[in-house]
């Protein structure tokens, strides 16, 4: 690598052995079982949606790199992860053109505007989903039933909607467990939730597989275990406390943990390295903010699900978290006074 005799580089000078694309590749490996299971549950629809979202991100990454006359960075897998994660947060019968637009927006607005990989303030996949949610609120809340008998022989007509045209739905499933709870007061059994026998986003299905993927990444030291631990623990404690106060009004903490996108968000989205804090204590605070906000939005907010907005909000303040708890080097600047 060193061609010149004198090489000047800034810190860090000691590398741990994992390069960015190694880690990214492993995240993709950990995500693949989740993808497989959602394809198993939702059929070709889910596969097409996830593939198109990924295609949208990768193409946009390539084009933007070319436009800014940089070497293309699609080989580092980060755009692939953005696309897969976005695809997993979308309803399985989401129109393909919207998924493509989402993938492109995630990279352009979520990542490239800030300067590319390593500079993004927010998780790009969630930026994409937030924009899609605001742009197409109907399509993104129209769910498709899981385990339809014809899921491997037919593709839903909504998936193949022409670009810029409204999707037509042939089968609309009932509510997701969270909206069923919010609007009808019905609590889905936890066993159904854990194995993803319910409708929801493509990746909001089998919590068990998501946890296994997370454990794999933690074991390989490619993900900080504190974030998912903090998110899940804080969500569990808060919803548990509410459940103890009034078990009629509030759902059980187990339901809260396994329903919706909390598991996927805690394991694969909140752990985005660039948009999370770097200090161990900071990670705990960051995770706890996500967990608490999610429960607050679910219980008291207007929306049935709040994982996306909680993570985006926590992303926004993660530099401040680090700044607040930073150790003061002895003998340097005096302690910051409360402003």
């Amino acid at each position: 690598m060193l061609k010149k005799t004198l090489h000047i580089s800034s810190s860090p000078h000691i590398f741990k052995g994992h390069t960015t694309d190694q880690i990214m590749k492993n995240v993709v490996w950990a995500l693949l079982p989740v993808v497989f299971y959602s394809v198993y549950a939702f059929g070709w629809n889910a596969l097409l949606v996830i593939a198109t979202a990924t295609l949208g991100s990768v193409i946009t990454e390539h084009v933007l790199c070319r436009l800014s006359k940089k070497e293309t960075t699609i080989a580092d897998y980060s755009a692939v992860i953005t696309g897969i994660l976005l695809g997993l947060t979308l309803p399985p019968a989401f129109p393909l053109w919207m998924a493509f637009v989402g993938g492109a927006l995630g990279i352009a607005l979520g990542k490239y505007i800030f300067g590319g990989l390593g500079y993004n303030v927010f998780n790009p996949a969630l930026v994409a989903r937030a924009v899609l949610q605001a742009a197409f609120p109907v399509a993104i809340t129209t769910w498709h039933p899981a385990f339809l008998p014809d899921r491997f022989s037919e593709v839903a007509s909504s998936v193949l909607a022409l670009p810029l045209m409204q999707p037509q739905y042939d089968v609309i499933s009932g509510a997701t467990p969270l909206s069923a709870f919010k609007f009808e007061g019905y609590t889905t059994p936890a066993s159904e939730l854990a194995f993803g026998l319910v409708s929801g986003s493509a990746g909001e299905t089998c919590a068990v597989i998501i946890i296994l993927g997370g454990i794999y990444l933690i074991a390989r030291n490619m993900m900080n275990w504190r974030i998912p631990a903090a998110v899940l623990l804080s969500a569990f404690l808060l919803s548990g406390a509410l459940y103890l106060v009034n078990s009629e009004l509030y759902p059980s903490p187990v339901f809260m943990l396994f329903s919706g996108g909390l598991m996927l968000g805690a394991v694969f989205m909140a752990t985005d390295m660039v948009s999370s804090p770097i200090t161990p204590l900071g990670l705990w605070i960051y995770g706890a903010i996500i967990g608490v906000l999610t429960i607050v939005i679910r219980v008291w907010g207007g929306l049935p699900e709040g994982v996306m907005y909680s993570i985006l909000l926590a992303n926004a303040i993660s530099p401040q978290i680090d700044r607040l708890i930073k150790n003061r080097v002895y003998g340097t600047t005096p302690k910051m006074k409360a402003v």
Partner: peptide
């Protein structure tokens, strides 16, 4: 646009 155009709600927000 012709009938059936999917409007981007976010744009008027």
């Amino acid at each position: 646009f012709p009938e059936g155009f999917q409007s981007w709600i976010v744009m008027i927000l």
